[in-house]
Amino acid sequence: MRSKKPILLIEDDLIDVMTVNRVFDELNIKNDIIHKQNGEEAIKYLQSNNHESPCIILLDLNMPVMNGIEFLEEAKNDDELKKIPVIVLTTSNDERDVAESYELGAAGYMIKTAEYRDFVSTIKEIESYWTLSELPD
């Protein structure tokens, strides 16, 4: 990743969080990972005064309190938040979720598989894409 800013991970499954951390280690991605349990906590963090704006948000869809879709709706209405690219990372391969995510401004949609190795290649692809891509400051 070109940017040194942290990556915001909005995910409630502990093992998935561990997985992302492990993958980043394996791929030698240096960016910090800020972890929030659900959409509401993420919004609170992003709207707080002392937060570091992340360069990318990795978003899970199935979360309690405020799920991924609701988070995207909230983010769309916030001028600052909607600038940050969001990649939806989820188990759901339902077309409706895909369509809705893109409609709400998601930059990408990746499916979590049960296979760890697949997950590694997925993150690798995301990393290489966003390394090339420009990010807003």
């Binding site: 499954d13 502990l14 093992i15 998935d16 561990m18 997985t19 492990r22 199935n62 188990t91 759901s92 979590k112 598989t113 049960a114 296979e115 760890y116």
Partner: peptide, 16 residues
């Protein structure tokens, strides 16, 4: 989907 999630966890952890 709800059944798959913990399954994924078990699989991943056993791999690790």
């Amino acid at each position: 989907h709800d059944l798959k999630a913990p399954l994924r966890g078990i699989s991943t952890l056993s791999d690790w």
